[in-house]
Amino acid sequence: MSLPNRLAPLKQLGTRTWMSTAGIERAHRAILFPGQGSQYVGMGKDLYHLYPRSAKLVFDEADEALGYGLKSLIFGGHQEKLKLTQNAQPAILTTSIAMLRVLELEFGLDIATACRYALGHSLGEYTALVATRALTLADAVRLVRLRGEAMTRSVQDFHVNTAMVALVVRKGKLQELEDALAEIKDRLPKGEVVELANINSSFQVVISGTSKGVDQASRTLQDMQLAARAVDLPVSAPFHCEFMNDAAQVMQEALQKVEFKKPIVEVISNVTAKPYTCAEEIPQHLVQQVTSCIQWSRSITFCKAQDVDEFICFGPGKVLSNLLKKEYPLDQIKSITSADDILRHAEEFY
Rank of each mutant, 00 (worst) to 15 (best):
V250W: 04
A180E: 15
A128F: 12
A128S: 11
Q256I: 00
A197G: 09
V155F: 04
A180Q: 14
A128M: 07
Q216T: 11
N200E: 10
A230E: 03
R187Q: 15
A166C: 09
A248G: 11
E195F: 03
L129I: 06
I199W: 02
L167M: 12
A131M: 10
E253D: 12
E259G: 00
R229L: 15
L221A: 10
A150T: 06
T136N: 02
V144F: 00
N161F: 05
T127R: 12
K190P: 00
T220I: 07
D232M: 03
D179R: 05
R133G: 00
P234F: 11
A134P: 11
R145C: 14
Q225T: 06
N245E: 15
S236W: 03
D223G: 00
D223T: 11
E176A: 15
V205D: 08
L146G: 06
H159V: 04
D215Q: 14
L174N: 07
L174P: 13
V205H: 12
A237F: 09
S208N: 07
L123P: 00
A247V: 06
T127F: 05
L177P: 00
A197W: 00
K212H: 11
V193G: 03
S208R: 02
V141Y: 10
G124K: 04
N200G: 05
A247F: 08
Q222Y: 04
S202Q: 14
L226F: 09
V141F: 11
T210A: 08
F203N: 01
F158R: 07
A227E: 03
Q225V: 01
R145G: 02
V250E: 14
V141D: 07
K185G: 08
V130Y: 03
L196I: 04
R187A: 13
P234H: 12
M244W: 05
A230P: 12
N161T: 12
E253G: 05
D179T: 13
T210I: 08
N161R: 14
R142M: 02
D179I: 12
A140K: 01
E195P: 00
A248Q: 13
S208M: 11
L181G: 04
N245T: 15
V169T: 10
L143V: 02
K173Y: 14
T136E: 01
V193Q: 11
Q204C: 07
S201Q: 06
E178S: 11
V141E: 04
D215E: 15
P234T: 11
A227R: 07
L181E: 09
L143T: 06
R142N: 13
E149H: 01
S218E: 15
V214L: 09
T136H: 02
F260H: 04
M151P: 00
A197F: 00
T136M: 02
A182D: 05
D139Q: 08
K190F: 06
V155A: 04
E125T: 02
E183C: 01
R229A: 13
